[in-house]
Design a protein around this nucleic acid. Structure first.
Lengths: 209, 209
DNA sequence: GCGGTAATTGTACAAGTGGACAATAAGGCT
DNA sequence: AGCCTTATTGTCCACTTGTACAATTACCGC
């Protein structure tokens, strides 16, 4: 018959397929048979790897969170302070944010999701705090309360992402303008300095999911 | 048997019950039998008033949007410019925002929802633009581009609402501080002026749903 | 090779879904 | 009063869902 995969390979394959479907159909609508079809196996096999549907989607989201945080940190490491800060705010792929938005709406009803989301959010804030500190240390900006600045800018980025990805009310350029402009004002940077430091959009690190 | 209601009464009753359930369980999980049980009738009756489940939830959301926009505008009419602006940003009830967040996540897959959401969002922005203009006309603040300011502050308010309502990461006080502080800075108001103008929290206009 | 572990299949089932529809009964109109 | 519209009920159906499980069949160590 068809070739057989190792336990770990299959597990990972199922996770990624699940996440792909979540991005398309939303958490609530992903079915075990959907996942099985996406992977190309029988739905009974999914059960062999994950005890229940809830465990599967929770694991998929948790895995996505973990993988993305690693990826983000690595991607910004080699850049100059301003470029890294601008890169952090640059538009993320749609698949990506649609999953977060979906997670927001499910979190109040799904404790496991809420926990992973909380972890991810705090981690994102911490990354932004570090980026702000790098800019301040380099003498290129100022921040009285980096944590408060990070919290505010994260909220703004999320809200802008909603307007851009979920509602299509604003384009990617305007989204960048709003967030980068607010960051410049907030951190005492010269207007346009972040926009100029904006690196080439490094999209696609979500694509290989 | 049980007393009979007029067509319009029942229609409205079903709409409100649907919306209540959407706030609790999310759009995707609301079932015709859930709505019927909430109203206290047989699920066949729902079909008598709404041709399909999709039509029902779309109608419920559309009705909520319409009703809320009226309510908001009326609520802010009698206030002084600064108080009205502060009141607009004051925390909205959780039920309320959870529905919007859920709508964001469903909109990319449900055109009817996307349309209603778009309408609601543009209307909200317009209300905020008017509030900003009132403040500027009263000589209490400045705005070079009220539309851009409104768009940015709306995004921020939405992002803060996510952190507050969906993730529980920040409390209501901190949420107000972030949004009001950003508005003060953006509109050239003295720090704290909006916080002081903050009217008594007028919650509950969603409660009668 | 041979055997056992486990990955994979296929099928079965109970619960719940949206939708359809005939039967009933309440209430307004003449 | 009787009638006729229609709100309301109860039941039925085809379908999908998550879960369960016995039967296979590939692979790996001996």
């Amino acid at each position: 018959m068809a070739e057989r995969k190792t336990s770990d390979e299959r597990r990972d394959e199922i996770l990624r397929a699940t996440l792909r479907l979540v991005a398309t159909k939303g958490f609530a609508s992903v079915t075990l048979r959907d996942v099985a079809a996406e992977v190309g196996v029988v739905h009974g096999l999914i059960r062999h790897y994950y005890a229940s549907r809830d465990e599967l989607v929770a694991a998929a989201f948790d895995d996505a969170v973990t993988r993305e945080l690693e990826s983000d940190r690595a991607q910004l490491e080699g850049l100059a302070p301003l470029a890294a800060l601008a890169g952090w705010f640059s538009a993320t792929p749609a698949h990506h944010y649609l999953v977060w938005i979906d997670a927001w709406s499910e979190a109040p009803r799904t404790p496991a999701l809420a926990a992973a989301l909380d972890r991810h959010h705090r981690h994102c804030e911490q990354i932004l705090i570090d980026l702000i500190l790098r800019v301040v240390d380099a003498g290129q900006g100022s921040s009285i309360d980096p944590a408060a600045d990070a919290r505010m800018l994260t909220a703004l980025a999320d809200g802008v992402a909603v307007q851009h990805h979920a509602m299509g009310i604003i384009g990617v350029d305007e989204a960048d303008t709003i967030v980068l402009g607010a960051a410049e004002q907030r951190l005492g940077l010269a207007p346009g300095s972040l926009a100029r430091a904006h690196p080439a959009p490094a999209r696609g690190h979500w694509a290989e999911v």
